[in-house]
Design a protein around this nucleic acid. Sequence first.
DNA 1: TTATATGTTCTTGT
DNA 2: TACAAGAACATATA
Length: 257
Amino acid sequence: MPELPDVETFRLYFNKKALNREILAIKVFHPKVLRQVSEKKARQELLHQKFKSTKRHGKNLFAALSNGLYLCFHFGMTGSFLFYKKGNLPPFTRFQIDFKEGHLAYIDMRILGGLTITDSIEDFIEKKDLGPDALSIQWDDFKTILKRKGTLKPTLMDQSFIAGVGNIYADEILFQAKLNPLRNNFSLSLKEAKTLFTQMKKVLKKAIAIKADVNQMSKTWLLPSRKTHENCPRCKKEIKRITLRGRGTFFCPHCQK
DNA sequence: TTATATGTTCTTGT
DNA sequence: TACAAGAACATATA
């Protein structure tokens, strides 16, 4: 479930399992997983290198190699990592890095994600037209984004404005800020905009702290009840589901004005 | 069998 | 120009 908190969780997992270990082999199990890079080039650049550190921007993960390049991961809708020592290849493994200590599998059932190599994170962000990371964005920039016309939830989710917020955390952020996803950006008061900004940071940080695990989420959150016919954790009235920009959107019409 | 699923990108319409 | 809406990608599950 790879939005910002999930990707940050993958980053910490990657640090624990893959940093400072020699890459002995890479395996590509599905041709579509490599983006803008050939298997040959990937092998050339990765073999016998070590990962030295990681960075995250929005939903993208960058792993710095000892040769100065970066391996960039995007997890699409169903991507994740799994480190294992022995046994069978995990289902839907699309790419794998072998170390002496074990194997890091990049798993992605739907293959909507993928990986590539870049020599500059800044160029990568520029090319992908990504806005500032949702955890680093400053209030002034956030305020400016809300000045353009458009609908609140799609604006929050647009990666060129703010990088990292996806469909389900957008629902949670709006629920915590008590704002209706269909509101127009320009209809927000300064106070509402400030609340939205604060709640965005708060929700994302909290989600990272619990490793984006739905089972550990507070009972005051919408996400555990983000299904049809569930009730709002705040007012107990039924949660509504609408389709917005082709995505399921859950909210409480009573609490979110 | 149909609807839905956490993302991105492209096309078409307003 | 900028925003909205839908499809496509590949696969699983209810």
